[in-house]
Simulated scan of single mutants.
Amino acid sequence: MYSASQQRYDKMIYNRVGRSGLKLSAIGLGLWHNFGSVDSFENQKAIIHQAFDLGITYFDLANNYGPIPGSAEENFGQIMAGDMKPYRDEMIIASKAGYTMWPGPYGDWGSRKYIMASADQSLKRTGLDYFDIFYSHRPDPKTPIEETAMALDELVHQGKALYIGISNYDGAQTKAITTVFNELKTPFVIHQPRYNMFDRTVETDLFPVLKAEHKSAVSYSSLAQGLLSDRYLNGIPADSRAHKTTSPFLHEDQVEKTLATVKQLNQVAKDRGQSLAEMALAWNLREPEIASVLVGASRPSQLVDNVKALDHLAFTPAELTKIDHILK
């Protein structure tokens, strides 16, 4: 039977989310990969246990995570019902609705019908009474933003979510939905954008809005699907995600095109006494709007390595200038 480490809170950093009372662990665990029906359940348990022992309290799900869609929530729910049940009040558990989940016109996007049904399904799969954060996973171009906002607000009134977040909204969309949330007095506190050294669009588009509205962000794809690590420095392993994936975020050509840049960044990391992955996570956390960075893991030891990023978060102006020069 799992018993959490007594030292789990000794080294982790917890950042306040905007002006809210909520704090997130600076490193969060994303369950986008490695928690589906095709993955080892015992390994999933080991990853969750390791994460919690390291002080990681933020666990990030979505209704469609798998494969098959929904299986990540189901597997996480089984782990929660067993080993992790005594620690529920020490955990921030999030899920999302917005991408295709079931057939027909009601299983996608941001209508009230879809969001309310999806939240109920996600709670059933996880066996939870509520989510700490529930996100709109993407903006819906054909549904009024007020409808999506009011549906999310209703989840709070129903006791199904404590806080509300949005993901993949651009700056203008974020400003628009924030206006509605402010009118409703919705506890909207966080945005989840894709952000890493290779994808910096949100620095000029989204972050100024978050700063003005006193909201925070939790970044996903923080290591660019593994590009910002030593995984591909010496070629593309046969068992790597780049070799196997059909994801638009990672493919073999992308590895080849970024290799020279990655090698230069790796040298900067070495000069700092860090691995490239550690430096990439620390670089994300340099942004004041970033409360937490999400990492994925296929084995527990990866989390041990990722958390080492917190040992050296500071960058000198010269280091930041050199990184910017490399990325250009």
Rank of each mutant, 00 (worst) to 15 (best):
P317R: 07
E287L: 13
G235Q: 06
V202E: 12
K11Y: 11
S275V: 02
Y9F: 13
S40T: 10
G127E: 04
L276N: 00
E203P: 05
I323M: 13
E213I: 11
I145G: 08
A51E: 05
A81L: 08
E146T: 14
P105I: 11
P187Q: 10
E154R: 15
S71I: 04
I115H: 03
N34M: 09
Y99Q: 12
T179L: 13
F76I: 01
A224R: 01
T245E: 12
A62R: 00
N75T: 08
P208F: 06
N34Y: 11
D199E: 12
T186M: 09
G296R: 01
L24I: 02
D120A: 14
R19H: 09
H325V: 14
L294I: 02
L29G: 02
D205G: 14
R88P: 09
K257R: 15
A62L: 03
T126P: 01
G70W: 09
F198I: 12
L227C: 03
T261F: 13
I27Q: 05
I92W: 07
K175I: 03
L155D: 07
G70R: 02
M116W: 08
S292H: 05
A260L: 15
Y135V: 05
F207C: 01
K45M: 00
A161P: 01
L294Q: 05
N64A: 13
I27N: 04
W109D: 12
Q44T: 08
A26L: 06
V17N: 00
S118L: 05
M101Q: 13
G28Y: 04
K215N: 08
L228H: 05
V268Y: 00
G36D: 01
A269Y: 03
Q274N: 05
F59R: 05
K263D: 09
Y2E: 12
F249E: 11
G235C: 10
N34K: 09
A217M: 13
F188V: 02
T100C: 15
I236M: 07
G226C: 01
T100Q: 13
E42I: 09
I27H: 02
T201Q: 15
D305R: 11
E90R: 15
H251Q: 13
L228G: 05
A51W: 00
A161I: 10
P69I: 08
D89W: 10
G110M: 00
E183P: 06
K308G: 15
V218I: 15
S275R: 03
L303M: 13
K322L: 11
F249C: 09
F131T: 00
P248R: 14
P187D: 11
K185H: 14
N306W: 04
A280D: 01
R112L: 14
R88G: 06
G55M: 03
D53W: 11
Q192E: 14
G165Q: 07
L227P: 07
A314H: 12
E213Y: 12
N43M: 09
R241H: 08
D83I: 07
A161K: 02
V38K: 10
S111D: 12
G82H: 05
F52L: 14
